[in-house]
Design a protein around this nucleic acid. Structure first.
Length: 273
DNA sequence: ATTCGGACCTGAAAGC
DNA sequence: TGCTTTCAGGTCCGAA
């Protein structure tokens, strides 16, 4: 569920509250959420979190001893700071408590797709093989990525090994902003179109972060608050609505089992608009 | 080599 | 009303 803007929002919040704190204990309530040996967690008990960061859609806690704790929220994961006496429901699968902190961190995960694991901090990049960060990469590197790639734009944008952090919502919003059809072959774009795609990617993701992400159903930030950006979606989930740019009808197509929403008249397959 | 469908899970909403 | 089907911010795997 959460894509880059949602994960970024969670990380910002967690960072200000958890940086410098020492973990006192882990409580694994559903063993399936652990993607590593439970003994790995022992390495982190009594250790301080020196940094909370995002890489792609991963939430990462770096510890003082060179190990990191990683979370992937997948579709329905939530990392929420709560008071220990607040009742927890059956979807709370993992809890971290901290020394000198009145709140504990709960990992809720209705659909059980998400995971937690512990890795050496230096192993993370090799282990996940994520692509570039869309908000860090400059245009010339961005352009280079697309050279010779025949895949469809939508598939490439959501491919985490190509560019990390973009999922179904933001790919659709970015392609609408760039006025590019989701099924276009990446290698068919000229320089001007690539520049527009690069600019649109930055614009959409930044604006979504400013609005603390999109809450369509499950997403909540680390304080349990909803994001705002769903009110600014122009095409995602808007089949049959009117295109805010040209007044035409938004359509939905199926691509690898996922829905893609787009405006067939302003996101042309061919032509430069 | 790509692309697609199914699998992993649960629950809300829509359809009948 | 109540049962059935469809769909969901993700990603992996194996088969066409």
């Amino acid at each position: 569920m959460p894509e880059l803007p949602e994960v970024e929002t969670i990380v910002n919040r967690l960072s200000s509250k958890l940086r410098g704190l020492e973990v006192s204990s882990f409580n694994v309530l559903f063993a399936g959420i652990l993607r590593c040996d439970e003994k790995c967690l022992e390495r982190l008990e009594g250790k301080k979190i020196i940094r909370v960061r995002r890489r792609g859609k991963l939430v990462i806690f770096d510890f003082e001893n060179g190990f990191s704790l990683l979370f992937h929220l997948k579709m329905t994961g939530q990392l929420i700071l709560s008071h220990p006496d607040e009742p927890r429901d059956r979807h709370t699968h993992f809890i971290i408590t901290f020394r000198n902190c009145s709140q504990e961190l709960r990992f809720r995960n209705v659909r059980k797709f998400g995971f937690v694991c512990c890795l050496q901090s230096s192993e993370i990049e090799d282990f996940f093989e994520l692509g570039a960060e869309p908000l860090s990469i400059n245009f010339s590197l961005f352009k280079g990525l697309f050279e010779g790639r025949r895949a469809r734009l939508k598939s490439l944008l959501t491919n985490q090994g190509f560019i990390a952090g973009i999922g179904n919502i933001y790919a659709d919003e970015i392609l609408f902003e760039a006025q590019l059809h989701p099924l276009l072959a990446a290698s068919s774009l000229d320089e001007e179109e690539l520049r527009k795609l690069w600019r649109s990617t930055r614009k959409v993701l930044r604006k979504a972060i400013q609005h603390r992400g999109s809450s369509i159903r499950d997403y909540r930030d680390a304080d349990g608050e909803q994001g705002d950006f769903q009110s600014y979606h122009k095409v995602y989930g808007k089949e049959s609505s009117l295109c805010p740019r040209c007044g035409g009808k938004i359509e939905r197509l199926r691509l690898g089992g996922r829905s893609s929403y787009y405006c067939p008249s302003c996101q042309m397959r061919k032509g430069k608009n």
